[in-house]
Design a protein around this nucleic acid. Structure first.
Length: 884
RNA sequence: GGGCAGUUAGCUCAGCUAGGGAGAGCAUCUCCCUUACAAGGAGGAGGUCGCAGGUUCAAUCCCUGCACUGCCCACCA
């Protein structure tokens, strides 16, 4: 097989994407003889296109799945997409707008048809991109949150909740997006600081000439005030509590109430209470049984509460009311004020808290359980620091507003009995999974379904079991086999929105956690640390990176930076380095293959000499580190460990040393070293396969002449028999000698092409054998023609001299030596060693260190000191000879 | 207001859950196309490990406080 000089990612990738899919490499069936390891993909929105966040999230999951598969688990990674509720509906609405239409022009039915059609056209885009990324998903199991099975699950869940009394309908204060025209849950509101004003308004106290001044950022709501609240401990207002206020402009009488929630420090310490448009005020109203008056309607306009302002936009009303207050002398002052304003997480419009009839889910019990499983470590967070925010959130959770006034989504499975005019009868609502034919209470066949759809996160919360047909049959074998899943991989931005709710629902409906581990990775940022966004123009498109540098390069660069929980800054340099790494592996393999030729090579490594044992020892340590790293989701550690092993150890040292035997006349020697090379290479690409699947499978197929994917081989296992501590130490001696010789060569401008003579004087006799036995290594890597080793080697004037621990090395220089240059070089060497020596001296001169530190440590430092002293003596003596 | 991260070479980061040699990649400098790889090789320069205390024979690493940066949560009238 001919390998090209440069790794061609495009050629290789296309082939393997096709191979994995056609051979169903990642398809899974329940198999009781094997343990399952499941991941459900965080389903991307159907409208989506692959961005860096997906690339990171999914290549990490793929790495885990491939690793576990190679470890012998029956792995399953379930693909799918999310219908994406409001977000998706907004996209299609925008498309309609381009045609000059609104969804109302089409009507509900036609609009939904249009949505499905659009999904049909674009829904596979992101799935195809995941295929291109190499994701080992079981494609036959591709799911959609609105497909039949998932829809059944949603209805089943709704009914179960309802029957248990956990779902209720009521008019409450909710977050309303006037643009999307729907209610939102509390976590769907994002708060951003905004510049505004703080208005101080004087509220006259009845039957007196006094005023109570309140401060507000929303003066337009004052006409709906039903109380003024002060803190019960506030001395200033002690005798005002219970008194009556005449509401300016309105003339209505309201009470002054005392509530602990009021902050005495803020503003005037007196708060106007508008229960219908502020969450805190709503709470106060509930505690004090205050009347709730609506001021702003669902369109963001003023209600008919006061004729004068009726129909005005809230914004206009604000101006008018401020002007009116001013005119009537109630406005004390206006201050600039910056505060957080709630925005719709889907469209950025300012949220209006309004009173609205909605469906709610009681979450108290579920939250407790979901919090407890984290506290008990039944669900484990990686990194562990996310456990606390998770439990804190759950411990303070309020009921979940689950209804949305949009059309795209799971329609609430509640039916109402209506008369001929469409008016609801007195029959109670019917909650059924299947649309009922008639009212079970009166037999009437005129039924209408609730207009609302469910929060898109309601169906997402059931994803880990709805994908296994829980809706159809909660006792099915697949569900039992694959659930709970092994790990949930996600960014922290949807920890509450999604992760916490999956745990709640899993515990509620399956009485078991949905996943054992939660692996939270960071966010991909640009090279300046900024979040990528279209508006900033700093988006790196993963598809372009795949095209330019290769998919493995993209995956490796991301994996290498993916320290759990930490954001990563990424730039083209990262991908370039990863591409170079792929090329390095490719060429190391090419070198081995070229030398192998038609030779028959043993599958087991034929160990012959020092370097063989050294590299096997290093390889074995690498297995240990990498395996451990994968197991705790330190994919970054696994990546870096492999990079270092392959490049620094395998290529820079072992392959270089192998050339000695490779060019030998003795074919057996060549076969021997090839057996080690191939053994290590195969094992290493196995370890690399989870992260760089394309090049790994390609090389695997070349080396094994097989069509079986590398993921069906087993992950290398640490082996006690491959521990060679002595050889590791001996190799370190060789490496030190070689490095010092190379250093002299470079500093003295000896051409890398030139062969030199080197004399090694052995000072430490215990190291004599190592050097003698490994002359070939030193000669090859030091580019030495004549190597002399002995105890009695004389220093020579026309030689450069350097020292290693236990050795002096002389390199005779061609022609006349540049004495000044050599002196400078030696001085520099002395300087470096002295710096080292000072540290040892400092330690040893501390009597407490000698007294208290472990004896071995003291002995070790003493030895180091002796080494440096000896080195310095040698170098200084040489220097002195030059002076004479 | 509460919480969580981070602060190590010019840049991006590792090391800190074994306390005892400060590391990698990129960038930079010198030499080299030595036939696996110039997407490469060899070598060099570059850091008082945010600040101040404490524990210890010994602190980048453990503890406390502070500063700065980022993120999350909150009942910011």
């Amino acid at each position: 097989m001919e390998m090209e000089k440069v790794y061609d990612s495009k050629k290789v990738e296309e082939k393997w994407v096709k191979y994995w899919i056609e051979n169903k490499t990642f398809s899974s069936k329940p198999d009781k003889t094997k343990k399952s390891f499941t991941i459900v993909i965080p389903p991307p929105n159907v409208t989506g296109s692959l961005h860096m966040g997906h690339a990171l999230n999914d290549s990490l999951q793929d790495a885990i799945i491939r690793f576990k598969k190679m470890q012998g688990y029956n792995t399953l990674w379930v693909p799918g997409t999310d219908h994406g509720g409001i977000a998706t509906q907004n996209v299609v609405e925008k498309l309609l707008k381009k045609e000059g239409k609104t969804k109302y022009d089409l009507g509900r039915e036609k609009f939904i048809e249009k949505m499905w059609q659009w999904r049909q056209e674009t829904g596979d885009t992101i799935l195809d991109q995941l295929k291109k990324l190499g994701c080992g998903l079981d494609w036959d199991r591709t799911r959609f949150t609105m497909d039949e099975a998932c829809s059944k699950a949603v209805k089943r869940a709704f009914k179960k909740f309802y029957d248990k009394g956990l779902i209720y309908r009521g008019k409450r204060l909710v977050n309303w997006c006037p643009r999307c025209n729907t209610a939102l849950s509390d976590i769907e509101v994002e708060y951003h600081p905004e510049k505004g004003n703080l208005w101080y308004i004087k509220y006259p106290i009845k039957d007196s000439n006094e005023f109570l001044t309140v401060a507000t950022t929303r003066p337009e709501t004052m006409i709906g005030d039903t109380a003024v609240a002060v803190n019960p401990n506030d001395e200033r207002y002690k005798n005002i509590v219970g008194k009556t206020i005449i509401l300016p402009l309105v003339g209505r009488e309201i009470k002054v109430v005392a509530d602990y929630i009021v902050d005495m420090q803020f503003g005037t310490g007196a708060v106007k209470v508008t229960p219908a448009h502020d969450a805190v005020d709503y709470e106060i109203a509930r505690r004090h049984n205050l009347e709730i008056l609506e001021v702003i309607d669902a369109n963001g306009n003023m209600t008919d509460i006061m004729e004068k302002y009726k129909g005005m936009s809230a914004k206009d009303a604000r101006e008018q009311i401020v002007a009116d207050l001013q005119e009537q002398g109630y406005l004390l002052k206006t201050e600039d004020y910056s505060h957080s304003v709630g925005k719709c997480y889907r469209c950025g419009t300012t949220i209006e808290p309004i009173m609205s009839e909605q469906w709610f889910l009681k979450v108290e019990e579920m939250s407790k359980r979901a919090s407890q499983v984290a506290k008990d470590e039944k669900v484990k967070f990686y990194p562990a620091s996310w456990k606390k925010p998770y439990t804190l959130w759950l411990d303070n959770l309020r009921d979940w507003c689950i209804s949305r006034q949009i059309w795209w989504g799971h329609r609430i499975p509640v039916f109402y009995c209506v008369d001929e005019n469409g008016n609801k009868t007195s029959c109670p609502p019917i909650v059924e999974q299947d649309t009922p034919a008639k009212c079970p209470h009166c037999g009437n066949t005129h039924l209408v379904q609730d207009n609302d759809v469910l929060d898109t996160w309601f169906s997402s919360a059931m994803w880990p079991f709805s994908v296994f047909n829980w809706g159809e049959n909660p006792d099915n074998e697949e569900l039992k086999y694959y659930y709970p899943t092994g790990v949930l991989v996600t960014g922290h931005e949807i920890l509450y929105l999604w992760v916490a709710r999956m745990v709640q629902m899993g515990l509620e409906f399956l009485n078991d956690i949905p996943f054992r581990d939660v692996f939270i990775h960071g966010i991909v940022r640009d090279k300046h640390g900024l979040k990528m966004s279209k508006s900033k123009g700093n988006v790196i498109n993963p598809l372009e990176i795949m095209d330019q540098f290769g998919t493995d390069a993209l995956r490796f660069a991301l994996a290498q930076s993916a320290a759990p929980g930490r954001d990563m800054q990424i730039s083209n340099d990262s991908f370039l380095a990863a591409r170079n790494f792929a090329n390095k592996i490719w060429n190391a393999s090419r070198f081995i293959l070229m030398n192998k030729g038609e030779l028959e090579i043993s599958d087991t490594p034929q160990v012959k000499e020092l370097s063989d044992k050294w590299i096997l020892n290093e390889y074995n340590q690498t297995i240990k580190t990498v395996t451990r790293a994968f197991e705790v989701y330190d994919i970054d550690v696994a990546s870096r460990t492999l990079y270092d092993f392959i490049w620094t150890k395998f290529c820079d040292w072992y392959i270089e040393l192998s050339k000695i035997r490779m060019t030998s006349e003795n074919v057996e020697e060549k076969k021997q070293v090839l057996s080690v090379l191939i053994y290590i290479l195969k094992g290493t690409i196995k370890m690399l396969a989870p992260i760089m699947p394309f090049i790994s499978d390609e090389l695997w197929s070349i080396f094994n002449n097989t069509t079986e994917s590398i993921v069906n081989s087993s992950f290398p296992v640490y082996d006690d028999k491959l521990v060679f501590a002595n050889e590791a130490n001996q190799m370190a001696v060789v490496q030190e000698i070689v490095s010092k010789i190379r250093n002299v060569r470079s500093e003295m401008n000896i051409s890398p092409a030139a062969f030199i003579t080197t004399k090694i004087k052995v000072l430490d006799e215990s190291k004599l054998a190592v050097v003698e036995n490994n002359q070939a290594y030193i000669k090859a890597l030091g580019k030495i023609k004549d190597l002399v080793i002995g105890k009695d080697i004389q220093r020579e004037k026309n030689s450069a001299l350097t020292v290693a621990t236990g050795f002096e090395m002389l390199i005779p220089l061609e022609g006349l030596i540049d004495i000044e240059k050599e002196k400078a070089r030696i001085n520099k060497e002395i300087k470096n060693i002295i710096a080292e020596q000072e540290k040892y001296n400092k330690k040893l001169s501390n009597p407490k260190f000698v007294e208290k530190a472990p004896a071995e440590e003291v002995a070790r430092i003493r030895q180091k000191l002796a080494d440096t002293q000896s080195k310095i003596a040698t170098l200084e003596e040489t220097l002195k000879n030059y002076e004479n």
